[in-house]
Amino acid sequence: MTRLVDPVLLRTLAAVVRSRSFSRAAEQLGLGQSTVSQHVQRLEAQLGHRLVARDTHSVALTPEGETVLGFARTVLDAHERLERALAGGPVRGKVRFGASEDFVQSRLSDVLRDFREAYPSVDLELSVALTGFLNDALARGELDLVLGKRHVGETQGVLVRRDRLVWVGLPTALPERGEPVALASFPAPSITRAIALAALTQEGRAFRVTCTCASLSGLRAAALAGVGVMAQPRSLIPDGLQELAHPDLPRLADVEFVLSGPGLHREPSRALAHEILNADIWD
């Protein structure tokens, strides 16, 4: 008789794929790294296939792992719906959700639309701003849940995924020999701004800020006009712009996307957090 697959093991596999790291999956799930490895090994042993190809630099799915992940997401979604049904009645209430400006042009809108369709009795109130401002509002009790960014090494929030910041823009905006780097940037306290300025300063690269705007659409317009280059997570490069490489553009640090707030542990915000954690927003 075929044994049923434990949803806990499937949830662990999904977290490893989403975060591209066993250690970061452990952080997200609140487990030890050895436990995460054991979950994946148990799943592989039960299914009789290697699911995850591991090396010292990355974690990737095997073809069998890709197949299992597709089914895993279906099972986890069904499991979540069953839990809601057994909890008695539809989820009701209000979610005051804050999203960092970087995410407004991503597939986050698809997740929010699906959430509203799945939870018609929940009133969703969306705020879009820089992560620093959203965290301030969270501290004042004005938001329940925030999807924002943090520097690598910081510990607040639940890790959604890690990404590399890259330089993006048009090739025509790249500096000529000896000219300063023209930079289009969010204002302080933007995390991407801080990382970009620190990298340029550390490498001794001359730069000038040619556009400061709190709106990603405004920065995109400036970059499309060739006003300057901008730093952006690789998975969130705006349409029409491209990743750039140039001797005067130093390598940028990674950044982490996180969910924060008391809503992580209570309904209805917990349901939205679950949808975001299990969505392929940036793939």
Rank of each mutant, 00 (worst) to 15 (best):
E267R: 09
G65I: 01
R107S: 02
D110T: 06
A129C: 00
F257R: 04
L219Y: 14
A184F: 06
V8A: 14
L43K: 02
A26G: 04
V168R: 14
R251K: 14
D254Y: 04
A137M: 14
Q232Y: 11
E176F: 10
A60Y: 03
V5T: 12
P90Y: 09
P233N: 14
L200S: 01
T192R: 05
Y119Q: 11
H265F: 12
A87I: 00
R20V: 01
V128T: 13
F207Y: 15
L143S: 12
S217P: 00
V95T: 06
C213K: 12
S106G: 04
P268Y: 07
E44F: 02
F71H: 11
R266F: 04
L69S: 05
E117L: 13
Q232W: 15
H151C: 03
V59R: 04
E44D: 02
L143E: 13
V36A: 05
F71R: 12
D136R: 06
S215Y: 13
A87S: 00
F186H: 14
V8E: 14
G240A: 15
V59H: 02
G70Y: 06
Q105F: 05
F133T: 00
P175V: 02
L272W: 05
P120G: 09
S127Q: 08
T2P: 13
H39Q: 07
L216I: 10
T192M: 01
N135G: 07
A222N: 09
T131S: 14
A196W: 04
E66W: 08
G148Y: 11
I281G: 07
F97G: 00
D123Y: 10
G226Y: 10
G30M: 05
R73F: 04
F115I: 05
F133L: 05
N278M: 12
T56V: 14
L183A: 13
W282Y: 13
R161L: 12
E267V: 00
A196F: 04
A279M: 07
V168Q: 12
P268S: 08
L69M: 10
V5G: 06
P63Y: 12
A214E: 15
T172G: 11
L61H: 04
T56F: 08
G98E: 06
L272R: 05
